[in-house]
């Protein structure tokens, strides 16, 4: 047996390695993403375009208007999604809770559909503010229903069933709206609901970077009560956490993050479940103070990777981002469930 001191040293090495690995992956994927596409631009040119803001005008446009905002969207929104998933898993004490599974993405979609289809008939254009507001409201309302169900349902499987049902109801209403929508709206909504990081503008970027980063900082500052909450509600309270207030804060944060991501990138599946789980496995700990930043970084890496595949796998045809995240995320979830059940029996 190795001594506790020795093992603690090992743990520290592991944490450092995970963070360095994530940062390296992040950097490599970022460069890769800027570098690849239908128009090839050399690394030297890219560096000049980004840092000196000089170079060929078309290439300049491609890098600044298309590729950079998209990369930032994938990195920041992906991180936000992973964080949102981690918060929901903490809240429900349930490893496969996440914005997509619990019907929160569908709630957002419903409200975005209302804005895109119904509201557009009365006003000329919708701003990203309104979209975010709609998606956030949808997320909160769907979350509200899940919470209502969670109050009387303690079983984890039944809670998920409730989430899936809420998701169906939202989808049904959305479909109903689509029946009466203009073709152009349907195309817009469909494009939105497939999830994508393309078409992100700098105005969008400014907005969601602020929202997501503020949320990230707040969540990071909550890592102490979150660690207490992982022990269960009663213990958290006995450590001095005002559990009622904390629960509200937790749910607000996760809904705000999920709503914001969904508003800009559409509903993206599996990032919220798979990433925090992978991160915990890598770190071999569930300590929020480590898992929160690592999940945020990991979500960015995961989405950059998936977006890279989405863009390049069948170029020039682009896959929707959810197609790729599901392909890589779902096996992780399955593996996790098998592991858990294996550990129990």
């Amino acid at each position: 047996m190795s001594s506790p001191k020795h093992e603690k040293g090992l743990a520290r090495v592991r944490y450092t390695a995970v963070f360095i690995g994530l940062a390296a992956a992040f950097a490599i994927l970022t460069v890769w993403n800027i570098n690849t596409g239908s128009v090839h631009i050399s690394v030297g040119n890219i560096a000049r375009i980004i840092f000196l803001r000089a170079g060929d005008e078309t290439e300049f446009g491609i890098v600044w208007k298309l590729r950079l905002p998209r990369i930032i969207a994938a990195a920041v929104l992906g991180g936000g999604l992973a964080l949102s998933g981690f918060l929901m898993q903490t809240f429900f004490g349930n490893p496969i809770a996440g914005p997509f599974v619990l019907g929160i993405s569908s709630g957002s979609k419903l409200f975005v559909a209302i804005v895109m289809i119904v509201l557009l008939r009365f006003v000329n254009y919708v701003t990203s503010w309104m979209m975010v507001l709609a998606a956030f409201a949808g997320a909160l309302i769907a979350m509200g229903f899940v919470l209502l169900a969670a109050r009387s349902i303690k079983q984890m499987s039944m809670l998920l069933v409730a989430g899936i049902m809420i998701s169906y109801i939202c989808s049904a209403i959305t479909e109903f709206l689509i029946t009466f929508a203009k073709d152009s709206d349907i195309v817009n909504l469909h494009g939105w609901s497939q999830g994508r990081f393309s078409g992100t503008t700098w105005a969008d970027v400014r907005f969601f970077v602020i929202v997501v980063l503020v949320c990230f900082v707040l969540v990071f500052l909550m890592s102490k009560p979150i660690s207490a909450y992982q022990m269960g509600e009663s213990y958290a309270q006995s450590m001095g956490v005002n559990v009622k207030r904390f629960r509200i804060l937790l749910i607000l944060m996760s809904s705000l993050l999920a709503g914001c991501v969904t508003a800009f990138a559409g509903p993206i599946s599996f990032v919220g479940i798979a990433v925090p789980h992978l991160i915990k496995m890598l770190l071999k700990t569930a300590k929020p103070i480590l898992v929160i930043p690592a999940s945020f970084l990991g979500g960015g890496v995961f989405c950059l990777f998936c977006d890279y595949i989405a863009r390049t796998a069948f170029a020039p045809v682009e896959l929707s981002i959810s197609t790729v995240t599901a392909l890589f995320g779902a096996p992780v979830v399955i593996a996790m469930l098998i592991r858990r059940n294996g550990a129990k029996s």
Binding site: G93, P95, Q230, M231, G232, S234, K280, K284, T285, A286
Partner: peptide, 8 residues
């Protein structure tokens, strides 16, 4: 009550 925490 049982502590749910994993990986602690």
């Amino acid at each position: 009550e049982r502590i749910k925490g994993e990986l602690l």
